[in-house]
Design a protein around this nucleic acid. Sequence first.
DNA 1: GCGGAGTGTTTTCACATCGAAAACAACCTA
DNA 2: TAGGTTGTTTTCGATGTGAAAACACTCCGC
Lengths: 256, 256
Amino acid sequence: MAKEANHPVRTTEKSLALIERLREADGARIRDLVGVAELSKGAVHNHLSTLREHGYVTKEGEEYRLSLQFLTLGGYTRGRTPLYRYGRSKADQLAADTGMLTNLVTEENGRGVYLYQARGDYAVNLDTHVGYRIRLHYTGVGKAILAYLDPERVDEIVDEWGLPMETENTITDRGELHAELDRIRARGYATDHEERTEGLACIAAPIRLDDEILGAISISAPTQRLGNEGFDEEIVGEVESTANELALDLKYRYDG
Amino acid sequence: MAKEANHPVRTTEKSLALIERLREADGARIRDLVGVAELSKGAVHNHLSTLREHGYVTKEGEEYRLSLQFLTLGGYTRGRTPLYRYGRSKADQLAADTGMLTNLVTEENGRGVYLYQARGDYAVNLDTHVGYRIRLHYTGVGKAILAYLDPERVDEIVDEWGLPMETENTITDRGELHAELDRIRARGYATDHEERTEGLACIAAPIRLDDEILGAISISAPTQRLGNEGFDEEIVGEVESTANELALDLKYRYDG
DNA sequence: GCGGAGTGTTTTCACATCGAAAACAACCTA
DNA sequence: TAGGTTGTTTTCGATGTGAAAACACTCCGC
């Protein structure tokens, strides 16, 4: 996130805290929200009524929930993202060709954000989904992105988010991470061999435009489907060529 | 939307106005936002900094934009929606079977919200997308939903949103709309014969759970593909049976 | 290199507004 | 009917907001 604002608008922060709480709690009643941001019952009521009037919150009976307005704004924002605009059909194609789950991920504030997923005929079901935010250090897409960020930025991100261990294969050492990023740059693609989820592997390729890293595209599958020792050359090739096509499309696109 | 709050939180409303403006303008600089909600330059700066610190807004150079945080919250909210959870695979299947564009839409605050779209091999490209909001009176999904809302609610919605004409086939008369909704209830599905877009037709079926209307599923295609005079019986059957399966899945689902 | 215009950021302080507290309303249970 | 719980509304004083102004920075043209 950004450095602290000099003159934060505290009232807005209170509304945002309520929104965050509604998300965590998956909807809540007023009494459950008393105390959030140190707000009283009446104050919670005022904030929720305001958010509701503007369509950001719905009320069913006594229960307040986040509305689909976030999906509307999010869909709009995603639609303005070149990586999504040009990458969606490529991801569909890669999913159809390989039968696997393909992902389109970009970076925001030091984490990955899933922009799109396409499901092939044999796609695995995971906890990830559009909008989902994920640590960069233990995913193929994440490492593919990190490899092409400035090293200082990588360190900033590690400082902020750490290198939490998820499986025994997770990279938890900063030096080891940088070495891995060197390898990724050298060969042009990233892999994830059960670094976040046991039994799951990924092959990911960065998508760059004029030295700027826009994100990455990947396929995820059970480890054995991607080649148990060493990754399957053919599948790696498919991911790489899809990424190359996408990068070219982005470079020579018509609109701004 | 809701009736006016008694004690609106004006500061929150100002932040929301800025968010709305950023969406409309597709990003903006501070000078462009002066005057929105009657805010001064310094005030705009404070609001944007606050929103940025909490991850709702990004800043590239001097330009502020909505972040993907909305996609994150929206993806989360969508994932909590039973119609989406159970309907996604059905929509995929219907798209694969028919080759057409299939849509999953629910209603919120008097408009339809696209929850999901699946693309068959011959799917048309439209302006609709996930999160997109659409009037109910000139779409198949919209009319399928209206047909199973309380008639008073339908009138409320018409009062709020009107019946704007989009093509010469658009229903613009309230009585005619109610007659159409009667027909839809009688035969169990709705159609759209170029009522919103010339050359485009839809077949839509409502998804209900215990007399509550959760939304609708539809397929969209060029008019001639759905049968030029009268809709193709076979395709109608596919949509209807998909809707029935989905309704059953929703009724006998395992989780709450 | 200099001055001026345009813009983003920070500071100050008067006054709008936010929200704690309390009263009220609506509901449920015993 | 009384008593408990919760949502909504009102009141009014403390707080936080934002207009205005000053400052900092960049980009011009000369």
